[in-house]
Simulated scan of single mutants.
Amino acid sequence: MKIAFYGSSLVSSYWNGAATYYRGLLRDLAARGHEITFYEPDAFDRQQHRDIDPPHWARSVVYPATDEALAKVLAEARQADVVVKASGVGVFDTELLQGVIRNAAPHAIRIFWDVDAAATLDEMRTAEDHPLREALKQLDLVFTYGGGDPVVDAYEGFGARRCVPIYNALDPATHHPVDPDPRFTADLAFLGNRLPDREARVEEFFLKPAAALPERQFLIGGNGWQWKELPGNVRHLGHVGTAEHNAFNCTPLAVLNVARDSMANIGFSPATRVFEAAGAAACLITDAWEGIELFLKPDEEVLVARDGQDVAEHVRALTPQRAQAIGEAALARVLAEHTYSLRGAQVDAILADEAAQMRSAA
């Protein structure tokens, strides 16, 4: 099928945590024979911070953030068998949503792909005129970054015909064990941009343990933390490109995952970082969230912390030998059960089913 995908960015992870998710899924779908065009606006300096060149498996279209350019790329939706509007593009989100529905060919499968479902649902609950409420009536599918039954029930309660979580996963060609890099030496490292609904949890699960363990080394990567007052034993790196994620995960004794407030409340939504870390055979410490055992087994494949004190205790008790054992067990689990090849097969089957239903109804 020809897939027109309107998202934030395929070629840059700068202020764009969904980049590796898009890459893993769309690369696999391309390998299954789908013809993919990814449309992304030139916005937020993402094009100045590219992680990859335009891939051979997708046509990459970068358009100026202007009304004229928007109309031009939306017109191309008419040529597609599947049109996708992803959440969080950052510019023209409403116009893109309405435009892909308006311009889609009669036979096309129309999809909203939500990479931040908890935040989107919160917005819809508080805004009766939210554009997605009306758009759901005209969409064939909603895919989400995760969320389990709570997200499915919420979306279908708002009128979605069908909502399916497509969870994050591992692309073993991109994220895998590498040699340690001295630049990332630490006892505990955290990678994530500074966002309003994440900051308090980073303070609790990362900065509080750092203050409690002044003799240990802590490392934080991501945009925005340079303006945050940090303990003296916390080193800040700034943006860490995708090409350096493996070394960032492999080098420290352990790495930390912290869910954003909204996702922690929903549960069943492992962040991309969980699978990136497991793919690099890193020892992962994560804040507790509902459903984690469906992805990694606590105490054997991941260490779970209820609060900052738990994080500090995990770091104190962790030896290099145990960290290695946990990381290797996590890698084996995700290779067996949580790869983008498996997720791609899921999406491919759903698209085939939708297309068959539409043909039979015609």
Rank of each mutant, 00 (worst) to 15 (best):
A118R: 02
Y167F: 12
A4Y: 09
A349K: 13
R322K: 13
L230N: 02
P214F: 07
E156C: 00
A277L: 07
V83D: 05
A345M: 10
A332R: 15
A288T: 12
R102W: 08
F38Q: 02
V274S: 03
G157P: 07
D51Y: 05
G148E: 10
S87V: 01
V240K: 04
T242Q: 15
H56F: 10
A43D: 10
E229Y: 05
P182G: 11
N249I: 00
V274L: 14
Q48S: 14
V240Q: 05
A323I: 12
R50S: 03
P196D: 12
R125C: 04
L253Y: 09
F248S: 09
H34T: 03
A254S: 14
R260D: 09
S60I: 10
L139T: 00
N249A: 15
T272I: 14
G344M: 06
L70W: 09
H34N: 08
S360P: 00
P214K: 09
M358T: 12
D153M: 08
V84D: 07
D353P: 02
L219P: 04
P54S: 10
N193D: 15
V255G: 02
F190S: 01
A317R: 14
L284V: 10
N103A: 14
T242K: 10
A259H: 15
R316D: 06
L253Q: 12
D28F: 05
I166E: 03
S8V: 07
A104N: 04
F268N: 12
A4D: 12
P320N: 08
A264M: 13
V152L: 04
Q309D: 14
D122M: 10
A282I: 10
A211C: 05
E354H: 07
R322F: 07
E276Q: 15
G146W: 10
L207Y: 03
T120G: 00
F184K: 08
E328C: 08
Y39G: 01
A345E: 15
F295Y: 15
A323E: 04
G232P: 04
V255T: 15
H176T: 11
P106G: 04
G17S: 14
S341L: 12
V164D: 08
V100S: 00
T319V: 08
A65P: 09
D181H: 11
D187P: 07
I3D: 10
F184D: 03
Q48T: 06
F184A: 05
A278C: 06
L253G: 01
A282S: 13
